[in-house]
Design a protein around this nucleic acid. Structure first.
Length: 836
DNA sequence: CTAGGGTTAG
């Protein structure tokens, strides 16, 4: 009797995606696959013809086996149809063989669910799986990380008395370990009476892949000690563990086991080259690469991604051209690098070509490729195209959402990013880091801290990227208590401190006026780069300690660290605040002469400031007139500020006229600059640019001062009455004026830039935000406590005199941070010696 | 007919 086989067989729906990055469900397929499909079609035609039943059966078996090997959705469709043609008893050995092959095919293609479904249907029909079935179906589970199904299958293995089978045990080890349950795998491993090289390799490989490379390496040596000889697969796993550890010496020790087999294994050579590249042994990697006779796609992809990671887009393009000349067809991994390179270099034309290639070759079904396209468009400033790609994606994960919101943030549209953030079905650490960073970028520092608190309450663990944003927010708020809390948070939760975070911490303490802590952190930094040195020099500049800033700068150059344009801004600012005119001029000259750095407009701005603060207005003007570029608002602004302190109205008028002649500066260039910083993760610099924009009036912002009381930040803007304690504060301001008036204080009305009568001027002056904040500080803290105020603009001379007198009259230490430096007031004197 | 390997987006 011709019993039909059980049906239905699993149907591949369009949503069905391989669970693991295996073979791609390509529309075109490779040459090899096309050739095989031809054979499949021939076999299929033979099989569908009527003929002798036993001949058909062997044809079907052969067909299914071939299709399983090809393992593409198309070939699997054929395999399924072929099985339906089988007319024998579903439970006989031949049928079992066919079903095993089918499961093997689905597993190999990464269709985990279908493999499991086939297995289930097999059992349902009373067909007993054998010792071939389990390795096949378990391999599918491994690719789909189907842990629970794996446990069930493990149970069936035991029930069928197959738990002693070496192949099945090895499959189970691998399954558990790949699901992140390495200890489950180890349990199986420990119970084995006999272990072969595959057993060990499975464990080693999983440790490497699950980010436990140290364990992988120690297992490798354990295995060698147990007398098992590593084969090329073992070596590949161990070597990639070394690549992850960036440990060249360990890598070399493992290479000793390569032995006579030499380097005739492509995968091994690829792994070695990768390891050398990751460990920084570029020359060794390059020579191995050049010696390679059969450079394959994976090798090219590897080199390509390495170049892209290092920001070497030109070299990346050269590699891409070379691989095309070799006749290799770029795959999705290639495209990930190519798209990332186009984004990095902002090459929209090339990026679009990449997008077209992806569409032509049906690679857009891979989510990672579509995400990379979103990144590319966002990096090229084409956020609308990025959104369109996002909208068209059939499946999108949290990564896709992240890519889109990061694009909005990068393109300066934080509102849209925020809107999406609230809509996201799922968030992860990157999402939160992006949004916190976005708020810092927008100079919404308190909101950034608040969002960080929300993130904690959601149970998401912060990492070094989070803390980078939080630290720079604390720094800009000048909130010392918050800064200290942030520092201990990092210590308490063992958040890894990389160079970037250390630098941000130096900056944070410096901006909170705690130079001691800043330098303590700085002194412990190993391998300081120029940014780290810059933050220390910046700390000195903020104190007005020009001498020490210069000392640190010299120390840096003596240690062989090459100065960049940014560090000179810090050094020149320090000279300016310290009144070191001669030294400043010398440094400025040395930029070009000794370091080959052409001064940019920002450096000229510093010099104008330097001359201006020292009262050398005509020198400042000469410098401006001799500048190789057109002076901008910043340069003129520095001189104007100097005119104000020097009370040189004639020159002030001249400067004001020049400023009015300037075309309205477009904020576009600033957004651009802040985006450049944002893309480099330099949130501190981003915030600085944003603040500069505000100060330059590109975004109009009134003078404001803030003070932190018990972890809460109170902000005052001039003449703002909204604070709940305003009545008390007003009383206090009046009291302050009276008491310091007795010590001879006379308001300096030239600080009011409005044309109003003197009484009104005096009132406006008394409402300057730093006075309000100081008054609030006096009310809210117990006698003797230092008061710390942060002001967003330069302190006016009247407030400066008032705070000096208040510090004496009330016996308080008062610290005011203005937009570029600190003033420490004590006993009627200020650390700046009235020069700022 | 069975198990283990190299590249992979924010």
């Amino acid at each position: 009797m011709a019993a039909t086989s059980f049906s239905p067989l699993p149907t591949l729906t369009t949503q069905s995606q391989p669970k693991h990055n295996t073979k791609h469900p390509s529309r075109t397929g490779s040459f090899r696959q096309r050739k095989n499909m031809k054979e499949v079609k021939q076999l299929h035609a033979q099989v569908t013809k009527k003929g002798l039943s036993n001949r058909r059966t062997s044809g079907i078996t052969k067909l299914i086996s071939l299709c399983a090997e090809i393992a593409t959705p198309e070939s699997l469709e054929y395999a399924k149809k072929a099985y339906e043609l089988f007319e024998g008893d579903a439970s006989n050995r031949v049928s079992l063989h066919m079903l095993n092959s089918l499961i093997r095919g689905y597993s190999a293609a990464g269709f985990c669910d279908e493999a499991i479904l086939l297995y289930a249907q097999m059992v349902e029909r009373g067909v007993n799986p054998d010792h071939y079935t389990f390795p096949f179906v378990l391999s599918g589970c491994t690719k789909g990380a189907a842990f629970l199904e794996g446990i069930q299958l493990h149970g069936s293995v035991v029930k069928l008395g197959l738990e002693g089978d070496l192949f099945i045990q090895n499959s189970l080890i691998h399954l558990y370990a790949e699901c992140g349950e390495i200890d489950f795998g180890k349990k199986v491993f420990d119970k084995m009476s006999e272990r072969n090289v595959v057993s060990w390799t499975s464990l080693i490989c999983s440790c490497t892949r699950r980010d436990r490379p140290e364990e992988a390496v120690s297992l490798f040596f354990e295995m060698v000690e147990a007398g098992i000889k590593p084969n090329s697969v073992t070596l590949v796993c161990a070597i990639s563990a070394c690549a992850k550890l960036r440990d060249l010496d360990l890598g070399k020790r493992i290479c000793a086991y390569i032995g006579q087999q030499g380097l005739n294994n492509t995968v091994l050579v690829n792994a070695l080259i990768h390891m050398y590249m990751k460990c920084g042994a570029t020359d060794r990697a390059k020579s191995l690469f050049d010696e390679c006779i059969d450079k394959n796609l994976v090798l090219y992809n590897m080199i390509l991604s390495n170049y892209v990671h290092q920001g070497m887009e030109r070299e990346a393009l050269a590699i891409l051209v070379e691989m095309l000349q070799q006749g290799l067809q770029p795959d999705r991994v290639t495209m990930l690098s190519a798209l990332s390179a186009s984004g990095q270099s902002g090459d929209f034309a090339f990026g679009r070509q990449c997008h077209c290639y992806v569409m032509r070759n049906g690679l857009e079904g891979w989510e990672s490729v579509s995400n990379a396209i979103i990144d590319m468009y966002a990096n090229c400033g084409k956020q609308d195209l990025a959104s369109r790609v996002f909208d068209r994606m059939s499946t999108k994960s949290v990564v896709s959402w992240n890519s889109l919101i990061i694009g909005f943030v990068r393109n300066g549209d934080v509102d849209s990013a925020w809107g999406l953030f609230n809509q996201m079905p799922e968030t992860d650490l990157v999402t939160w880091n992006t949004m916190i960073g976005a708020l810092v970028q927008e100079s919404l520092f308190e909101d950034a801290i608040e969002l960080f608190r929300v993130m904690q309450s959601e149970g998401i663990k912060a990492d070094e990227v989070t803390m980078l944003s939080v630290a720079s927010a604390c720094g800009y708020l000048g909130a010392l208590d918050l800064a200290k809390w942030t520092y201990s948070y990092i210590e308490k939760f063992g958040i890894p401190r990389d160079l970037k975070l250390d630098t941000a911490l130096v900056d944070m303490f410096a901006r909170c006026g705690d130079t001691k802590s800043a330098m303590l952190v700085f002194n412990k930094i190993q391998n300081r780069d120029v940014s780290a040195w810059t933050s220390a020099i910046g700390a000195m500049a903020m104190e007005g300690n020009g001498i020490r800033a210069l000392k640190i700068f010299n120390e840096m150059t003596n240690q062989g660290v090459k100065p960049d344009a940014v560090v000179f801004v810090a050094v020149l600012t320090a000279c300016s605040h310290g009144g070191l005119v001669e030294q400043g001029m010398q440094i400025f000259r040395s930029m070009k002469e000794s370091y080959g750095i052409t001064p940019q407009i920002i450096h000229y701005g510093c010099m104008v400031d330097l001359f201006g603060r020292a009262g050398l207005l005509s020198d400042a003007l000469d410098l401006i007139n001799g500048m190789p570029m057109e002076p901008n608002k910043v340069v003129w602004g520095a001189l104007l500020a100097a005119c104000r302190t020097q009370k040189d109205t004639q020159m002030a008028t001249y400067v004001a006229e020049r400023m009015n002649e300037l075309a309205q500066e477009r904020s576009g260039t600033h957004v651009l600059l802040s985006n450049i910083y944002a893309s480099a993760g330099k949130w501190t610099d981003v915030a600085r640019v944003r603040l500069q924009m505000k100060e330059k009036g590109l975004l109009k912002v009134p003078g404001s001062s803030s003070i932190e009381i018990d972890g809460v930040i109170h902000e005052f803007t001039s003449s703002d009455e909204s604070h709940p304690e305003m009545t008390h504060i007003s009383q206090m301001v009046r009291e302050m004026s009276c008491r310091i008036g007795d010590s001879g204080y006379v308001p300096d009305l030239t600080n009011v830039l409005l044309d109003v009568d003197d009484e009104e001027k005096e009132f406006l002056l008394s409402r300057h935000s730093e006075k309000l904040a100081t008054a609030f500080g006096l009310i809210s803290t117990s006698p003797g406590t230092p008061i710390r105020v942060v002001k967003n603009l330069r302190m006016c001379s009247d407030c400066h005199s008032v705070v000096k007198l208040v510090s004496k009259t009330y016996g308080r230490e008062i610290v005011v941070r203005d937009n570029n430096r600190f003033h420490f007031f004590r006993q009627g004197f200020c650390s700046c010696n009235d020069f700022w």
